[in-house]
Simulated assay, not measured.
Amino acid sequence: MKIIRLATPIALAAAVAGCSREGEISIDGGVGIQATRTACPIVGVPAGTGDITLFDPPASRDAAAIDVVANITNVRGQCGESGNDVVTTVTFDVQARRNRTDSARTVTLPYFLAIVRGGTNVTAKRIGEVTLTFPAGQARAQTSATATSVVARSAATLPEEIRDQLTKRRRAGQEEAAVDPLSAPGVRAAVARATFEALVGFQLTNEQLRYNATR
């Protein structure tokens, strides 16, 4: 699977709001800067995969040939624990509109849930489908879907020595207070290895990906 960078950090920060607070660590340098880390994966949509356009005829890319346009929205994650696993339930809505409304119609669209480790490594991927129903005379339809990610708690937990470096109290005036602990390559690499993302998007063809990137 080709890795697509995430759309915006702000959107992802909002999406992770549903995560459990258990297992969090607070990184506080004692100089007014604090960050919180949790074992819960970041939930989001990879750039370029949040919408899909169907054409009629399929080979055309003319605006007049657009048949159905759908997008993924309201992505949320609810994170919890089950034994040694961190389990996240990802919910999202799919909203769609069509051009021809003369008769009732159902449209089924494929989507994926991918677990990404360290920002680049896809460790698991599942494909699902959502079905939208358009009543006769209606141009818009909406449905909801749910997907679940499972990450081993041991993989998402920082080693104790790394936690100690991150949570060590630093006071203003001390030389080390001016140094970001994440600037150390070993610390940065350990945090990346323990950081997971649960990403949902439409399962697009290469042609559909190109269309989203160039339209």
Rank of each mutant, 00 (worst) to 15 (best):
A11R: 10
T214C: 09
P159H: 06
L204M: 06
L6D: 09
E197L: 10
R100E: 15
I4L: 15
Y211N: 09
Q78D: 15
G83A: 05
A96H: 00
V150Y: 13
E24N: 13
E161K: 10
S149D: 13
E24T: 14
T73I: 08
D102A: 15
T167F: 02
I3F: 10
I33G: 08
S60D: 03
T36N: 05
D51R: 10
I72G: 00
D93E: 13
T88N: 03
I3D: 08
V151M: 08
K168G: 09
A152P: 05
V94A: 01
R105A: 14
V69Q: 10
R21I: 15
P135L: 12
D180S: 09
F134A: 02
A152I: 03
I72M: 08
T123M: 07
S82I: 09
F134I: 03
A14M: 12
T167H: 04
V16C: 06
R98E: 02
V75Q: 11
T143Y: 08
S20V: 03
A194H: 01
V200Y: 03
D85C: 05
E129L: 04
Q142G: 06
F112Q: 02
S103E: 15
A63M: 10
A15D: 04
P110D: 10
R193G: 11
R140M: 14
D93W: 00
A155H: 06
T38C: 12
T146P: 02
G30M: 03
T148H: 09
L166I: 00
V151E: 00
E24R: 12
D67S: 12
E22P: 01
A114C: 06
L158V: 07
R153C: 02
R76V: 09
R37K: 10
D180T: 05
S103D: 15
F202L: 01
T205R: 01
I25C: 06
P57W: 04
G80Q: 12
M1V: 10
V94K: 00
A124F: 04
R21D: 13
F92Y: 09
N212C: 14
I42N: 04
V107F: 04
G201P: 00
E81C: 11
N212H: 11
N74G: 06
T89D: 11
K125C: 13
V68E: 00
Q95C: 05
R163H: 11
V31Q: 12
V130D: 04
G80R: 10
A184I: 06
T88R: 00
L182D: 01
A65Q: 08
D164E: 15
R215C: 12
V31F: 09
S149W: 00
V69W: 05
L166M: 01
L182C: 06
A104M: 06
L6H: 08
